[in-house]
Lab assay of single mutants.
Amino acid sequence: TTKIQIRLADGSRLIQRFNSTHRILDVRNFIVQSRPEFAALDFILVTSFPNKELTDESLTLLEADILNTVLLQQ
């Protein structure tokens, strides 16, 4: 498993454990389930350093190389 910290656009944080085989789409779905107010918003996930937009949501967390990292919601 891996721990992902997500810094949300409103300044708050979410921390969740995922399997390395989960997909970026699963992280997006977790955000929307945790904070339904973001469901209607068009947002992207970005790595904190170096900044990289995670546009291919079909990638696993392992394939995207974002295990144990911080993601930013923009």
Score class of each variant (00 low, 15 high):
Ile44Cys: 11
Ser48Glu: 15
Val27Asn: 06
Thr60Leu: 01
Ala64Ser: 08
Ser12Trp: 00
Val46Trp: 09
Val27Phe: 03
Leu61Pro: 02
Ser34Met: 11
Gln73Ala: 06
Phe49Lys: 13
Ala9Phe: 13
Pro50Ile: 04
Leu25Ile: 13
Ala64Glu: 01
Glu53Gln: 12
Leu54Cys: 10
Thr60Met: 09
Gln5Cys: 15
Thr21Ile: 04
Asp26His: 03
Asp26Cys: 10
Leu72Trp: 15
Pro36Glu: 05
Phe18Arg: 09
Ala40Thr: 14
Ser12Cys: 05
Gln5Val: 12
Val46Phe: 02
Ser20Ala: 13
Thr60Ala: 04
Asp56Met: 05
Asp42Thr: 02
Asn68Arg: 01
Asp65Ala: 01
Glu53Cys: 07
Ile66Leu: 15
Gln74Gly: 06
Phe18Asn: 08
Leu61Cys: 04
Gln5Lys: 14
Leu54Trp: 06
Leu59Thr: 07
Pro36Asn: 10
Thr60His: 04
Thr60Gln: 02
Leu62Pro: 06
Phe43Trp: 15
Ile24Ala: 06
Leu41Arg: 09
Leu54Tyr: 00
Gln16Thr: 09
Glu37Val: 01
Glu57Gln: 03
Gln73Leu: 08
Asn29His: 03
Leu14His: 11
Arg13Ile: 15
Ser34Cys: 07
Leu14Cys: 02
Leu25Cys: 14
Arg7Ser: 10
Arg7Asp: 12
Ile15Thr: 11
Leu67His: 14
Phe38Ala: 03
Phe49Ala: 13
Leu14Lys: 03
Ile44Lys: 12
Ala40Cys: 08
Gln16Ala: 14
Ser48Cys: 10
Leu59Trp: 11
Arg28Lys: 14
His22Pro: 02
Arg17Gly: 08
Ser48Thr: 13
Ile66Tyr: 08
Phe43Cys: 06
Asp65Tyr: 04
Glu63Tyr: 00
Glu53Pro: 12
Asp26Leu: 01
Leu25Ala: 15
Ile24Asp: 02
Leu54Met: 08
Leu54Ser: 04
Lys52Pro: 03
Arg23Asn: 13
Gln73Ser: 04
Glu53Asp: 08
Ile15Ala: 09
Gln33Leu: 01
Leu59Tyr: 06
Leu59Cys: 07
Leu14Gln: 05
Val27Ile: 14
Ile44Leu: 04
Glu57His: 04
Val27Tyr: 07
Gln74Val: 15
Asn51His: 14
Val70Trp: 05
Glu53Val: 15
Asp56Ile: 15
Phe30His: 08
Ala39Gly: 08
Phe38Arg: 03
Ser48Ala: 15
Ser34Val: 12
Ala64His: 02
Ala39Tyr: 10
Leu61Tyr: 12
Ser48His: 08
Glu53Gly: 03
Arg17Ser: 13
Leu8Cys: 00
Gln73Val: 15
Val46Thr: 06
Arg28Asn: 04
Ser12Arg: 04
Leu67Pro: 11
Val32Arg: 04
Thr69Ser: 13
Leu71His: 12
Leu67Thr: 15
Leu14Ile: 06
Asp56Leu: 02
Ala40Phe: 10
Pro36Gln: 03
Phe38Met: 15
Leu45Thr: 07
Ile31Leu: 02
Val27Asp: 07
Arg35Thr: 05
Asn29Pro: 08
Lys52Trp: 00
Leu41Asp: 12
Asp56Arg: 03
Asp56Ala: 08
Glu37Leu: 07
Leu45Lys: 11
Leu59Ala: 10
Leu59Gly: 04
Asp56Trp: 05
Arg23Gly: 06
Asp26Ser: 05
Ser34Gln: 14
Leu25Tyr: 13
Asn68Met: 04
Lys3Gly: 04
Ile15Asp: 06
Arg35Lys: 05
Arg35Ala: 01
Thr69Asn: 08
Leu54Ala: 03
Ile24Gln: 02
Asp26Trp: 07
Leu8Val: 03
Val46Ala: 07
Thr47Trp: 10
Phe49Tyr: 13
Thr21Gly: 11
Leu62Trp: 13
Leu8Ile: 01
Leu25Arg: 15
Gln74Met: 08
Thr69Arg: 07
Leu67Lys: 14
Phe38Trp: 07
Arg28Tyr: 00
Pro50Arg: 08
Asn51Arg: 15
Asn51Glu: 14
Ile15Arg: 03
Ile15His: 08
Ile66Val: 15
Arg13Phe: 13
Glu57Asn: 09
Ser48Arg: 14
